[in-house]
């Protein structure tokens, strides 16, 4: 099978959905003439024209709200946040409007809008550009959040997100943009809300999302090679909806749960996962649930420390070995 980058996979998803539905519009800072700050939308302006690929001023509040307003009339805007950290600038639009309008109208209105862009630390840019807001967004009923970890997942989830009739947040990762995975030529979709077992194992369930899945897979390899531990890696893929059954069943099989995510620990995604495991697989646990998350401070700039602040294979291996 051919291999393409995570970036190319997302671009293919956008192209296919732009072709499929004339109501799809790509909008954001530098997405058109500049070809995208991270080149995800490179060449789209030339291919689809200025009506479909739209540069905005640096006004996150206005263009996020504009997208939500237009979506009420059936337009399907796909908004790029150059960094997902910038969604905090438009939090009122995202939380009060995108999430609540359907509810407050008693179900009369729906907002088919996608917010996408990179949501990761680890790129040596300091605290303001390194946020991972998946827990904030997932905390808000009315919104959906997906965090693809591979090019294959990114393409299939992006296509589902654009076709979804609710607001969906697709949180990408700049470190993954240049990495390649196998992606078929033919069209496919990945359902929102279905976790994926990226590696099967028997001794331990490592549950992760986004780039932490790649970290978990590297750690699992090391655990197998050097320690004879056969770890299963569950990729959540979607934070809300959350495929509880898949990770609970994995833990029931292995008896051990190690949660890995690049989110901050306090009220982070892992806290919710741990709740479900203790509630639904308590009697199957052979050890307390363990967790490796971002070290609990604002994202540090200094590169060697930043590499330690985020989960890395060494930290995951150490945590796994401590579980006994």
């Amino acid at each position: 099978m051919r291999k393409i980058t995570y970036r190319q996979a997302i671009k293919e998803a956008l192209i296919e959905e732009l072709r499929r539905d004339p109501n799809v519009v790509i909008m954001g800072e530098e997405v058109a003439q500049y070809n995208g700050a991270y080149k995800v939308t490179e060449g789209l302006l030339e291919q689809f024209g200025a009506k479909r690929i739209v540069d905005t001023p640096i006004s996150e509040t206005a263009f996020s709200g504009l997208a939500i307003g237009a979506s009420m009339l059936g337009i399907r805007p796909v908004i790029e946040f150059m960094f997902f950290s910038f969604c905090y600038v438009s939090f009122d639009q995202v939380i009060n409007n995108a999430a609540n309008i359907r509810y407050m109208s008693g179900g009369l209105i729906n907002c088919p809008v996608v917010f996408r862009g990179p949501a990761n630390g680890g790129t040596n840019v300091g605290a303001t550009h390194s946020h991972t807001p998946e827990n904030f967004i997932a905390n808000t009923p009315g919104l959906k959040v997906v965090c693809p970890s591979t090019a294959y997942d990114a393409k299939g989830l992006m296509k589902s997100a654009i076709r979804d009739n609710d607001p969906v947040f697709v949180m990408e990762n700049t470190i993954l943009y240049g990495q390649e995975w196998e992606v078929p030529d033919e069209e496919y979709l990945i359902p929102i809300g279905k976790a994926d077992i990226k590696r099967t194992g028997t001794d331990l369930s490592i549950i992760a999302h986004g780039r932490a899945v790649i970290t978990a897979l590297a750690a699992a390899q090391e655990l197998a090679d050097k320690h004879g531990i056969n770890a299963e890696v569950v990729d959540l893929r979607s934070i809300r909806p959350l495929d509880v059954d898949t990770f609970v069943n994995s833990v029931k099989k292995t008896g051990r749960a190690l949660l890995v995510d690049e989110n901050k620990p306090f009220c982070g995604v892992g806290a919710q996962i741990a709740f479900h495991i203790q509630a639904e697989a308590f009697d199957f646990l052979d050890a307390p649930i363990a967790r490796v998350s971002a070290i609990d401070s604002p994202a540090i700039y200094s590169k060697p420390l930043e590499d330690e602040q985020l989960p890395n294979p060494r930290r995951v291996v150490e945590a796994a070995l401590k579980m006994g």
Partner: peptide
């Protein structure tokens, strides 16, 4: 938060100024 999309009425919004980007979006649509 009154709404009646069948009458082209899109709310009814509680946050001061928060509806102004939505109005932009309706006009854009």
């Amino acid at each position: 938060h009154f709404f009646a999309p069948d009458k082209n009425f899109w709310g009814g919004h509680g946050i001061v100024g928060g509806q102004t980007p939505l109005g932009l979006g309706l006009a854009y649509g």
